[in-house]
Design a protein around this nucleic acid. Structure first.
Length: 482
RNA sequence: GCCGCAUUCGUCUAGUGGACUAGGACGCCGCCCUCUCAAGGCGGAGACCAAGGGUUCGAAUCCCUUAUGCGGCACCA
């Protein structure tokens, strides 16, 4: 069997979202699994919808996930160019060939007429489709149109009878009757091809061995099959991968919150976690394996395990996975990855804080809220928090005074003896007849400004003697006020 | 409206005629641990396999019908 060559062919119309990238991932995994090539081709054939930095957004999204490509716009390759806007003559040539064969024809209809036509069809409850007006023009009429210099497009002449079948390696045979297939435009009046012409021509010319794309493309496969047949080309195996949807079961889109890959990066998701999660949407190995490192994914990925039904993108499960991967990271590595999310932190200090926040976050952007008290001078909080639910100000004050007295005895050098300090503080609580909860609760708020925080002893150690004592003293004053 | 695709716990899924009293994971609930919150450990609830017909000694697994959901119906991809 010849080399596997698969391609990801996005349109530079904005930041790629996770649904598209999931398809790219399947392509990538299959290429790596088989030792073949993964090709990036940009389908920039719609000048109106194109976004300025569209290409860059695509490249960045793939890089973030570590999805590497062997041929593409930036790296070139033997079958370039890899931007369709740079291949216009190729499409023109092929369109001309189709016209010469009588498989396609020039159409001179205006947008206005087409819109009017569809309006009528819709009113009648029919499927909107081209009405063949220009398909059966006489040679004289055609010549007249040409002489008049009317703008024209090239349309595919779909056989009115029969049906077209495509074998899909995920779903089996797909069949659609030709009468339900529109005479699709192949070449637009601006000289750019539409998707239908461009994919077929490029997939063939670039020797693509397997075509994977979203199942929203299923309705248009007959056009592609017809083109392959007209050109006399072999149809590569096709597989329509299931859609990734939002919780409402609708195709993922802007309405579903953050779906852009880059947004996940900015929110603090690790690429290895997103990669793992995406791979498991519409694909699974067996009845128990959830965690896959990149190489395991590559080793295990096969086409026959791709699912048919659409999958809802479950943010909750992604968060769990991300938390798992964070906990798996070595402390030094986590510190390095966390730095961009808390730039005000001194790197050495942040490194020391890792053990405190590591088991407590699911995303890197949660770190700041957890450890911000380390980086502030005086804390702002409601004094009521010091007292807690079932206690009173006097009790809280007594607890803080005791704690302050105890901690004060420890000089700078001995302040990091967590065990000893904790034992003594517990003894303080007991002497005051207080339970641990209210005692440490008051101390926690005084030191961290929060009722929920990383472990107290470690927090005080890292905060340092001076700041700790000052905060406790300040809390005592707050309780004395009124 | 027309055409197409899909249908196993809330979600991601295992399952390809008997090993299924349908397995795992997330989430949820409870317990343990415990200075809070997590993490971790243990346990639990949760799917009559969309419905109805067949085929078969036997069906989540094969066939048909229906229902529901989704997708497509552009000089967009």
């Amino acid at each position: 069997m010849s080399e596997t060559r698969v391609r990801f062919a996005p349109s530079p119309t904005g930041a790629p979202h996770v649904g598209n990238i999931r398809t790219a991932l399947f392509d990538y995994l299959w290429a790596r699994h088989t030792g073949g090539k993964f090709i990036l081709r940009v389908e920039d054939t719609d000048q109106a919808r194109e976004v300025e930095n569209g290409l860059e957004l695509i490249l960045e999204s793939l890089r973030y996930l570590g999805i590497t490509w062997d041929e593409g716009p930036d790296v070139g390759g033997a079958y370039g160019p890899y931007e369709q806007s740079k291949r216009l003559p190729i499409y023109k040539r092929h369109a001309d060939q189709l016209i010469a064969q009588g498989v396609a024809y020039h159409c001179y209809c205006t947008e206005e007429r087409l819109e009017q036509m569809r309006k009528v069809q819709r009113a009648r409850g029919e499927q909107t489709r081209y009405d063949y007006r220009c398909r059966y023009l006489s040679p004289e009429e055609r010549a007249a149109n040409e002489r008049a210099g009317l703008p024209k497009v090239v349309r595919l002449a779909v056989p009115p009878e029969g049906k077209t079948t495509l074998h899909d390696f995920i779903r089996g045979d797909l069949t659609i009757e030709n009468k339900n297939v529109d005479d699709q435009v192949l070449l637009k009046s601006d000289g750019f091809p539409t998707y239908h012409l461009a994919v077929v021509v490029d997939d063939h010319l670039m020797k693509i061995s397997h075509v994977m794309r979203g199942d929203d493309w299923i309705p248009s496969f007959p056009k592609h099959v017809l083109l392959y047949q007209a050109f006399g080309w072999e149809i590569p195996p096709h597989g329509h991968v299931p859609m990734v949807t939002g919780a409402d079961k609708k195709k993922l889109g802007k309405r579903h919150g953050s779906t852009s890959v880059l947004q996940f990066r900015n929110d603090g998701y690790l690429p290895e976690a997103l990669l793992n999660f995406l791979a498991r949407l519409g694909w699974s190995l067996d009845d128990k394996t959830e965690i896959f490192a990149r190489q395991q994914l590559i080793d295990a990925f096969t086409l026959d395990k791709i699912e048919r039904a659409p999958a809802i993108f479950d943010y909750g499960k992604l968060d769990w996975l991300n938390g798992y991967y964070i906990r798996e990271l070595p402390d030094d590595e986590l510190a390095a990855r966390a730095l961009p999310f808390i730039p005000q932190a001194d790197p050495a200090m942040l490194r020391a804080l890792v053990p405190l926040f590591k088991p407590r976050i699911k995303k890197l952007n949660e770190i700041a809220a957890l450890v911000d008290f380390f980086f502030e001078q005086d804390l702002e909080y409601d004094p009521q928090l010091l007292i807690g639910k079932d206690a009173d100000a006097a009790t809280a004050r007594a607890a803080l005074r005791a704690a302050h007295a105890t901690l004060e005895k420890y000089p700078e050098g001995a302040f990091d003896d967590e065990e000893k300090i904790e034992a003594e503080l517990r003894a303080d609580a007991e002497r005051l007849g207080m339970k641990n909860l209210p005692f440490f609760g008051a101390l926690r708020v005084a030191v961290t400004g929060k009722t929920v925080s990383p472990p107290l002893m470690s927090s005080m150690r890292l905060l340092g003697r001076e700041k700790t004592l000052r905060r406790i003293a300040r809390a005592i004053v707050m309780l004395e006020k009124p």
